[in-house]
């Protein structure tokens, strides 16, 4: 029984680089016929081994054969435009060189990673944005923080409160106004307070949507003092004071 060791290739460019390196081929002068043949042999091997061959591998096979056919044409039989064209391999060579550079960059990142993995430190969110409001420091709450805050509020609401069947007439637009009004009177309020005044599930959802909308247009910010702390809503310090509506 034969044992075949087949390297795993990230993609067609990776496979081509491997073939070039294996035979110590000059990357600027690739013997296209030979490389194409080897490339197709590898694809066959991959097929034999029942590996899924991604479409990209087949596209590259077609590209290689196209280049090969172009190179087979004797110079005098090429049309004038074609004769002026660059080496049919040039485009492929450029792609290979660029890919090779990033492949090498990935390797240097890998060695940086190994070095850093041996250093232990305290946990902390590296990308938390700090904002100052009334001399206190906050960092911005993420969407996930908001959703978990919302689900906590939702879970705490007693079921009985929803027995009444009344068609609610609350709109996101109206809630947006309400929230902005609150922020005219005071610089910040707790997210919880906002939901406490809601009378129904629908209203709570609408309030939540209004919050998201205002955050999207950067009118307000949801901030917290510590991880999993209470979420406060503040005016976005980067935006001019909202005027009374």
């Amino acid at each position: 029984m034969y044992k075949v060791k087949l390297e795993e290739f990230e993609g067609p460019l990776d496979l081509l680089l491997f073939l070039i390196k294996k035979d110590e081929i000059d990357i600027y002068d690739i013997p296209i016929a030979m490389v194409t043949e080897q490339y197709l042999q590898y694809l066959e091997l991959m097929e034999l081994m029942d590996l899924d061959i991604a479409g990209e591998f087949l596209v590259m096979a077609a590209t290689l054969m196209h280049i090969k056919s172009k190179m087979l044409l004797p110079p005098e039989e090429r049309s004038p435009e074609e004769a002026e064209e660059e080496d049919p391999r040039a485009e492929l060579v450029k792609r290979l060189i660029e890919y090779k550079a990033f492949k090498e960059a990935a390797s240097s990142l890998q060695s940086l990673e190994s070095r850093q993995r041996d250093l232990f430190h305290r946990p902390g969110d590296m990308d938390a944005v700090e904002v100052e409001c009334n001399g206190e420091k906050f960092f911005e709450a993420s969407l996930f923080d908001l959703i978990s805050a919302f689900s906590t509020v939702f879970a705490n609401v007693s079921k009985e409160a929803f027995l009444e069947v009344i068609k609610e007439q609350v709109t996101v637009e109206q809630k947006v106004h309400d929230i902005l009004h609150l922020l005219v009177d005071k610089p910040s309020f707790a997210l919880k307070d906002l939901f406490d005044s809601s009378k129904s599930k629908i209203e709570m959802v609408v309030v939540f949507l209004a919050l998201l909308e205002l955050m999207k247009i950067h009118s307000i910010m949801a901030v917290q003092k510590e991880l999993f702390g209470e979420i406060q809503i503040i005016r976005n310090p980067a935006v001019i004071e909202p005027t009374k509506v």
Partner: peptide, 24 residues
């Protein structure tokens, strides 16, 4: 790692641009 390397050197960069380099 490959994708991160491309993003790190070319940022900001789109997915099609990354895929053009990686070929997958």
């Amino acid at each position: 790692l490959e994708t991160l390397a491309i993003i790190a050197y070319k940022q900001p960069v789109t997915k099609p641009e990354i895929e053009a380099i990686r070929g997958v």
